[in-house]
Every structure is written in structure tokens, then in C-alpha cells.
Design a protein around this nucleic acid. Structure first.
Lengths: 166, 166
DNA sequence: CTTCTGACTATACCAGCCGAGAGCCAGGCA
DNA sequence: TGCCTGGCTCTCGGCTGGTATAGTCAGAAG
């Protein structure tokens, strides 16, 4: 029914987390607009007004969000100029930005299954050459699929945990 | 650099999405408090004040969030009574709630890598029996790992897309 | 010279997230 | 009888996310 705790974590009353990565991630990129902008970037969008038009967000918030995500290091802002054209800016994903692929497509997968009507959402992810369906899931390095019950949580190195408040 | 579009999607100027699952999912569960409460539920928490104490959220918002998530069908609220004890309520995850496992742990994985200091976050996920590390990733059903470049997006059945605004 | 476009900025405004702090009610226990 | 606990609710207030609307500025095109 839930995952397992190993080692000093076994008694859950004796510890708590002060800085959980889930909370930090949500504070950094946990808005609808950030996720939609990242979706567009994964689709290949790089320019300001393409982000705005294709996400249907307003200019103001796209500007604010791109500035914020760039500051956080998810995008780099580059200026480029085609021959005989004016200078433009483009926003390119960094590794830090691309590493959110599992988050964004896991959200899409959940929405497709549980929020859209019969038959799921409008789009599907497939393997490029074979057409095989693609899913976001918990896996070992070798690719074995895991249920929550197969997973355990352990402390990462000697890093101390804060004692529980209780 | 980005994923591929197949079929009618190939020309991205000709289509846009009115109801993207990513946006719908973020509207439903896209808050820090929801994700922290779900984390706790995956850890096995079922009772109101355990949620409140262990997430370090206030009572008010835990109450509001549990009510909302229950209404959405991610939890069921059950009353139970141990012998000689008073009646209590417990919040049990449904399949819809458990299906958010990839989202929550993908957020954790990203935060561990990019927001925590050297050496990552305080906790790690491992395979229960072998201790092998566990990751959230894009995979085919057979377990093959995929980069963004290996993935294509296709339309899901005959469902029509709204024409682009432009 | 005017117009158009890309990439923004400015202002105003509403709704929701979240915390702090207090209070409430029922059941069991001393 | 009074206290304690579990599971809440209420109010207040700040900050942020989001929309709408308008304006700015530079550089090409006509």
C-alpha cells in the first residue's frame, strides 16, 4: 500500500524533513504557466511570441516566467540575427530545463487518464521509429518496472536529518 | 533537440490545443501543498494531524486540501474505530491518487539534482530487495530508456484539434 | 514617412495560496 | 467535573498567479 522505509527511517515518528526536494521543486517551477512554457520548449519553441501564442498565456506572464526560468538556469537567452532580418532573442533549454521532461510528461499522462473524457487526451507519445507507446514510470537502471511497494527509501549518505518536532 | 511531430501535427502553425492535459493537471493538483500531502500519502500517512505535522503545513490548508483532493477522487475518507477508542477519520489513496507517483517522484528527482547542494537531497529511492537505484523516466513498455529525440507525438484517434488562432 | 512586427513594460484588478492565531466540538479519561 | 486529543472551522492579511488593456522601442518593409 505504501513504500518501505529502511534503516534509521524505519520509525517515521523520529524524523522529518526540513527541505524536501518536492517542496523546493514546486516553489521553483510549480505553476501552470511554467509547465506550459516548458511543454512548448520540449516541442521545439524558442521565441517569445510563439510561447505566448501557443500556450495562450498573456504576454505579461510569459515575459515574467521566461525571465524567472532563465534566472533559475532552465533557459539561456540568446540573440541571433538572420541575414537581412532584425535581431531576435531565442530561449534555449539547458540540461536543467530538459531534466524536467519526466515531470511535464508525467503530468500529461495523469491528465490524459484521469481528467480527459473517454479515450484520453488529444495527443499520445510514441517511440519515434517503432510507434510503440511511451510512458513515464518508476524504473531501475536496467528498465524493470516497479510498483510503489517494490520501492524503499533510504538516507543519502551521512547527511543528518532534523529530529522530528513531536 | 526536441521531440518529433508526426502526421497532421507536423506543421505546428496549423494547430493548437484548447485543453492540454498538462494545464488541466496543474489546475487540479498544481500546488505545493497538494504535492506534499501526496508525498506523505505515498509514505503511508492516512490521518489528518499526521499530514499536518509531517508536511509542516497549517491545519487550515491541510483541511482544505484534503477536502479538495477527496472531492477530486484522489482520496477516500473513511471512518474507523479501534476498540475502546474514539472514532477517527482516515484518508486512503485511490488509484487516481496513486497514479500521481511518477509526478511526485519526478519532482523529487529534479529537486535532488538541481536544487539541493552537493550530493543531492536527503533521501534516495532504491529497489526494495536489491538496493538498486530507482529513477523516473520515459520508457517504452519493454523498459527501453528514451531521450526526447527518440520520442514522437501523434494524434490520439479521430479526435479533432482546434484550428490555430493565427 | 508610415506601418508592421518582435519583444517586451506598465497599470489595474481579482482570485487563490499560504501562514498565524484562535476557537469549536465530541469522546474518552482522571 | 474538567482536561486532553483528533479533526476540524474562522478570520485576518500578505504575496503571487493570472487576465485585460494599453503603451514602448527598434528595425525592417513599403
Amino acid at each position: 500500500m505504501a513504500l518501505a522505509f529502511q534503516g534509521v527511517l524505519a520509525d517515521r515518528r523520529t524524523w522529518s524533513l526540513d527541505t524536501c526536494s518536492i517542496g523546493l521543486s514546486m516553489e521553483a517551477v510549480g505553476t501552470r504557466s511554467s509547465m506550459l512554457i516548458l511543454r512548448e520548449a520540449f516541442y521545439g519553441t524558442t521565441r517569445f511570441d510563439d510561447f505566448a501564442r501557443r500556450t495562450k498565456l498573456t504576454d505579461a506572464i510569459v515575459a515574467a516566467r521566461l525571465k524567472e526560468l532563465t534566472k533559475l538556469g532552465l533557459f539561456t537567452k540568446e540573440l541571433y540575427q538572420e541575414l537581412g532580418k532584425r535581431r531576435r532573442s531565442e530561449y534555449l533549454l539547458t540540461e536543467k530545463g530538459r531534466d524536467l521532461v519526466p515531470v511535464v510528461f508525467a503530468l500529461m499522462q495523469w491528465g490524459d487518464k484521469h481528467l480527459q473524457g473517454e479515450g484520453g487526451g488529444p495527443l499520445r507519445l510514441v517511440e519515434r521509429s517503432t510507434g510503440e507507446p511511451v510512458k513515464v514510470s518508476l524504473r531501475t537502471a536496467s528498465g524493470e518496472a516497479l510498483d510503489l511497494e517494490d520501492v524503499a527509501i533510504v538516507t543519502n549518505g551521512p547527511r543528518p536529518l532534523s529530529p522530528s518536532d513531536s
